[in-house]
Design a protein around this nucleic acid. Structure first.
Lengths: 243, 243
DNA sequence: ATGTTTTACTTGTTTAAACATGTTTCTGTA
DNA sequence: TACAGAAACATGTTTAAACAAGTAAAACAT
């Protein structure tokens, strides 16, 4: 549910762009026109448009107008972009998702793990290995580290469904921020065993390591997502600020 | 040169965060305090702070304050993030950059190339292959496609230095937007020849394909950057909007 | 017809004010 | 002391207005 005016406008414009109400390279109606359309103030409208800019949907040109530069992407496979769960992504791309828990355990972070997870040494965490299937094909192997005190009551059953659904709906935790690093790493024995049984062409994995913060500003999760390289696509839009 | 107030404030706060004036996990001064510090309006200050949020430097918490969640990244190698040139990136990371032009030619886009470049078939383009060295080590192989009519007068000499410097300073073109897709692809013979001569462990490359738009909203560049996997790192910060 | 100037229209920046909502702290009461 | 409520303070949303700066078209003079 959109809870604010600017978000309602943002969604409406976004949907109109996706549905070709405005053609590619066409100018959107001017601010003044849109203000009358949505019966809102200029600031509110501009806030909605600026989100479209960061999404890479439109480009503003001072003195000229706002140009639609949205092009639908060929959704050959699973695509990543924002913070969303595997289920959400799958549904958005029209696929069927299944998650299998390979390992569910808990331990304390040692010095070495503290370096790459970002958790202080000695922190009690849940460590979970999960395999994500898309249309019965294993695509992603996840190594999840959850700060135990921030995510109490986590079970294997929850991990088999959606952990984030549990966090948001049961624990009422809001996920706000996620720092991610993408790298390419050599395939491990575990990768090969679960993901690449019949794919022998590649010896690398696409790896996304992420630290996620909740609304209290606490880093409660470190996750390493190891993706089958031939099905990995990461979309990004960069806007050059301050020329 | 910062041309606006909010950008000046943004840079000042960013620099203060990077230099540990505010400790990690510490709250920044409140909006009212910062308004008095910078003698600006609330909107202007909030605009500066919101940029820090998208940068992943701080996190705002309604009713509580703004928390510093900046952690300096271990700069093991070359890191990517925003739209910036290879030289800029290298300088920022304290390295010496050299570019070698392998191929400089021009031709017209055919049907097949139109699909992945996004240029209409028949467009006249410059096609350039460039090898980027960092501290004498070849790291990136770039395949550049520049729309000829948008980038007139491009020469091999310019390509050996910085094409973007030419675009911005000579042609006064402003680069605004860049859509990027990251993938992992099998190594080609060209990759192996130039990048991986003495590295035989990997058979993949980290590939960034990008379409770049100028301030007229015209896509004038398609580039495929093929990175040596063991030196590839892509940083990203995702903010969950509208929970 | 051509070139210049004016005018209208576009987005960009900044301020001020009001109200909403969430968090913490203080305060008075039981 | 313990608890409820009020107050103070934090960020979030929205409106209105003014001015700046870039662009394009109309109006004008030559």
């Amino acid at each position: 549910m959109p809870k604010s005016i600017y978000e309602t406008i943002y969604r409406d414009l976004k949907q109109k762009i996706e549905n070709d109400v405005f053609a590619y390279q066409e100018l959107l109606p001017s601010e003044n026109t849109l203000i009358q359309t949505y019966h809102c103030s200029r600031n509110t409208l501009r806030r909605a448009v600026s989100r479209l800019v960061t999404d890479g949907y439109v480009q503003t040109m001072q003195g000229k107008g706002v140009r639609n530069i949205y092009q639908p992407i060929a959704q050959t496979a699973f695509t990543i972009g924002e913070i969303e769960t595997f289920r959400e992504s799958a549904a958005r791309n029209g696929h069927h998702a299944v998650t299998k828990v390979l390992l569910f355990t808990e331990f304390s972070i040692n010095e070495r793990q503290a370096l790459y997870t970002g958790f202080p040494a000695g922190s009690d965490i849940y460590y979970i290995q999960r395999l994500h299937y898309l249309d019965a094909m294993p695509l992603i192997l996840n190594h999840n580290y959850f700060l135990k005190e921030a995510v109490p009551g986590l079970t294997k059953e929850i991990a088999e469904n959606s952990i984030y659904e549990y966090l948001e709906q049961t624990l009422h935790m809001t996920i706000v921020n996620s720092k991610r690093v993408m790298t390419v790493e050599k395939m491990t024995q575990i990768d090969e065993k679960y993901l690449m049984k019949d794919v022998h062409d590649y010896n690398c994995m696409a790896v996304i390591s992420s630290q996620t913060y909740n609304s209290d500003g606490i880093c409660f999760e470190y996750t390493q997502s190891r993706h089958r390289p031939d099905y990995f696509r990461f979309y990004d839009n960069a806007v050059r600020k301050s020329v």
